[in-house]
């Protein structure tokens, strides 16, 4: 390559006269720098979704719905992993094999904890539900339990509703069989036709729906005194309860007094039971103070199974 060719490739080298003349001659054609014209840019893209983007979004929604609904629709299995159910606008029915069926009411959330040979456990997180559990011997008493923030409902072969209220209380109403409600040291027995209320300060003694106002007030006083350190106050409330008991079904309250921690209160309660419904075992010592013995008798004689 000659120096002329080098200058052709590299303009910083001394210019070749022929090349310089040619560049000068072409100077009028040289691009004249001008300000950038924004009109060269494409118009702003409208926010309309591209078809593929819309399709992807649709697919994503489908996956999310499937992820949400398919597990919820799949039946529960023994040893299945914990999962959560939510009834949004329609009731949601959750079968536990052929052992039980839960109907979760709209606006409610239930968590399935486990299903083991000896126990199936759920937790009601909000809202309300209705439970129907097969009676013994299909399902053993105590197998089906539902936890709430205020305590545990233990099935004893029944059908019941359980509601968590906005004020923080809970209420269980038994329509078949019976349940036990356990909170801390205290367990109450709720037979068919009766209901139990649970508040932050403790479990109330269950009552049948037709209990008198007087008895209801007396029971509340007793329940509140039950946790008080001074037993003398409780003695007063026991007297109020005994004074308010009139009907055989009121024996449900007396039976719970049999489980009072203090014998001094159990004795008048049992006497009241004897006066009200008679002795469970005529040929035995009347005052056994055995709640289990009394329970079987009362369920048969005083608390009819139809709840009336």
């Amino acid at each position: 390559m000659s120096e002329r060719d080098d200058a052709l490739f590299d303009p910083t080298l001394p210019p070749d006269p022929e090349l310089a003349a040619l560049e000068r001659a072409l100077l009028p054609l040289r691009w004249q720098p001008r300000p950038f014209d924004p009109a060269l840019l494409p118009p702003p893209r409208s926010p309309r979704l591209r078809p593929w983007l819309a399709l992807a979004a649709l697919l994503l929604v489908g996956v999310a719905v499937a992820w949400w609904w398919l597990p919820a629709m799949a039946p529960l299995q023994p040893e299945g992993a914990p999962r959560q159910f939510t009834a949004v606008e329609q009731p949601l029915t959750i079968p536990l094999g052929d052992l039980a069926e839960i109907t979760l009411r709209p606006g409610s959330t239930l968590r399935f904890e486990h299903w083991r040979p000896a126990e199936a456990r759920f937790a009601l997180l909000r809202g309300s539900l209705e439970v129907r559990v097969q009676p013994p011997p299909k399902v053993a008493p105590g197998f089906f339990v539902v936890d709430t923030p205020l305590g545990r409902v233990v099935d004893m072969g029944c059908r019941y509703t359980l509601e968590l209220r906005d004020d923080g209380s809970a209420r269980a109403v038994v329509t078949e069989g019976a349940v036990a409600f356990v909170r801390g040291e205290r367990t109450v027995f709720v037979p068919v036709g009766a209901a139990v209320e649970v508040r932050a300060d403790g479990v109330r003694t269950p009552l049948f729906g037709d209990a008198s106002e007087e008895l209801m007030k007396a029971v509340v006083e007793y329940d509140l005194a039950l946790t008080a350190p001074d037993p003398s106050r409780r003695g007063q409330t026991v007297k109020q309860v005994l004074a308010a008991v009139r009907d055989a079904r009121d024996s449900l309250v007396l039976w719970h007094l049999l489980r009072d921690p203090a014998a001094m209160f159990r004795e008048p309660a049992e006497q009241a039971l004897l006066d009200l419904v008679g002795a469970p075992l005529p040929n035995t010592k009347a005052q056994s103070f055995d709640p289990e013995e009394w329970l079987a008798f009362l369920r048969l004689r005083a608390w009819p199974s139809n709840g009336k």
């Binding site: 490739f9 910083t12 691009w31």
Partner: peptide
């Protein structure tokens, strides 16, 4: 490109 645009070979 060389004569009008004034670009070097590089």
């Amino acid at each position: 490109l060389r004569l009008v645009a004034g670009l070097s070979g590089a």
